[in-house]
Every structure is written in C-alpha cells, then in structure tokens.
C-alpha cells in the first residue's frame, strides 16, 4: 500500500474510533472530559518513558490509560468535594499537561518526543514505523494499534449497547432497574482513554480532541436515532480525515491541524444546513409557516 493511503487510513481510523466513543461522552454532557483526557495522556506517555526508557507500545499504553482514568477520577473527586465541574476539569488537566510538558523538556533530544510532537503528532511518519516480525514488515504500528482499539470499542458497544443507552439517557432510572451504571461509566472512560492513547502518538492532542468532540456534535445535528448517531459520528470522522488530508497536501500545512479544521468545517455545514436542526433550515421553515398562515 502506498505512503498516502497509509496516512489516510490512519486518519480514518482515528476519526471512526474517536468519533464513536466521543459521541457517547457528548450525550452524557462530558465532552470537556474528552478534552482533559486527551491533554493529560501526554503525562502518561512521558511517565512511561521515564520508567521504561523506551517509547514502545505497551508501557506507553498502560501509562496513558492510567493517567486517563486518573484524570476522570480526580475531576470527579474535586467536583464531589464542592468545586464546580468546569473549574475542576480546568485545574486537573492544565496541571497534568504542564507537568508532562516540563518533563518532556528534561528528556531533551534523546527521543522523538517533544512538545510540538505532543500537540501535532507525526502522522506523516506513520508509514515508516512498521510492525516487524521475523524481519517481515506487516504495516504501520499505528494502524495495528488503532485497529485493535476500534475492534475492542465496537465489541464493547455491541455487548453493552442497551446498558450504555439507558444509563446515558437516565442514569438514576438505570441504577434503579439494575443496570451496572458505574461499570458502564468506567468502561466508557476506558474506551475514551484507549482511543486517545492509540491516536495520540500519530496525530497529537489537537486532533484527538477535535475527533472526540466535533464529529459526534455534527452527527447529533443530523439524526434523532441512537444507532444512526453512533455510525454517523464515525462516518463524519472519516470524511474529516480525508478532506483534511487533501487540504494539508494542497497547501503544504500540518495534517493534524488540517483534519481538525475539516471537522470544524463539516460541523459548520451541519449547523447551518441540517434538514432538521440546522439554523438556516429552521429559519426557512419558520418563514414558510409565517407566509402560509
């Protein structure tokens, strides 16, 4: 497969993985938790580097997952101790992220991990970092990691579809009728953390946040059905990746930044022109009603 196709495939996998788990957070009104986790994951990766002295998959995955869950946990604890939730999110993620950035500056030039990398990722290098078994190359590591996380996410969503739906819509009622609400919540947090980690190294914090929040929001303006919403979030993520890549190549700019901008562009289109919930479409409808009566 060609260089370009690998990059586009990686972008699409990020789009579908983050899009589908992010829209569940959107419905729980926890989008900013996604923002927080995708920043703090940096600390997990740097921490794992200090412990294992390498940037290999597994320690990084564990470190990032631990810090991701810790973020969710600290935000909830602070909130429960009486701090308003937006401020709690603000304090936790800026602290962790700042710590991560400062630690990176101690690593210096030893590895290809720097602050710019943390924000923008290195998606252009994805095709070169391939999975090697017995000297054979089996495609980029990032694609494998994202693929595995995607399959895991899909399995979890399929298995706990009912539970996720009920506990998102009405958590108190869910608890009453015996849905394991807390378990489902942390499963979701785990899904978000894993999606973030798998995406972070190749596309950086900006694009992870964008893909977690924006495609879901776009889909939310386009449909009123739960299953369609999940699928559409993934599809919007894929489209954003493709449009973004095209724009990045055309203007020779950051691929991650361009993909993030593309999510914004698609959101704007839905915001204005969605048949049911678009701003302009609603206005047109109102005008027609007014003219008719």
């Amino acid at each position: 497969m060609s260089y370009t196709l690998w990059i586009i495939l990686t972008g699409c996998l990020v789009g579908i993985t983050c899009g589908m788990s992010g829209v569940l957070l959107l419905l729980k009104k926890m989008s900013m938790i996604a923002d927080a986790i995708s920043h703090t994951v940096l600390l997990g990766i740097v921490g794992a580097f200090f412990v294992s002295q390498s940037l290999n998959g597994l320690p990084m995955l564990i470190g990032a997952a631990v810090v991701g869950l810790a973020t969710a946990f600290f935000v909830e604890s602070l909130h429960r101790s009486g701090i308003q939730s937006d401020a709690a999110i603000g304090v936790v993620f800026t602290s962790f992220f700042a710590l991560g950035v400062v630690l990176i500056s101690f690593i210096g030039d030893q590895v290809h991990l720097d602050t710019k990398h943390a924000l923008m990722g290195e998606i252009a290098f994805v095709p070169w970092d391939t999975l090697q078994i017995n000297g054979e190359s089996y495609g980029p590591v990032a694609v494998w990691m994202l693929g595995i996380v995607l399959i895991l996410n899909l399995t979890l969503i399929a298995a706990f579809y009912k539970e996720m739906k009920i506990s998102t819509f009405d958590p108190q009622y869910a608890k009453l009728i015996g849905v394991p609400v807390v378990l489902v919540h942390y499963l979701l947090m785990g899904m978000v953390s894993l999606s973030t980690v798998a995406s972070f190294d190749s596309v950086g914090a900006i694009l992870v946040v964008a893909m977690l929040i924006v495609p879901g929001a776009t889909a939310y303006l386009l449909t009123d059905r739960f299953l369609t919403l999940l699928l559409l979030s993934g599809i919007v993520g894929i489209f954003s990746a493709i449009i973004g890549y095209g724009a990045a190549v055309y203007w020779n700019v950051s691929i991650a930044g361009a993909m993030a901008s593309a999510t914004g562009l698609l959101f704007m289109v839905a915001f204005l022109f969605s048949p049911k919930h678009g701003w302009l479409m609603k206005k047109v409808k109102q005008r027609r009603l007014a003219a008719g009566s």
């Binding site: 009104k29 946040v209 924006v214 901008s261 959101f267």
Partner: peptide, 19 residues
Amino acid sequence: DAAIGITISVFFGFGIVLL
C-alpha cells in the same frame, strides 16, 4: 460543554494550520 470543546479544537487546529 460540547460547544466549548468544538471551539477550542477547531480554532486551535486552524491556528496550527496557519502556523
């Protein structure tokens, strides 16, 4: 919260593009 998240990531992403 989602509105804030959308704005943060899209504006900053566009900033990186310009940079």
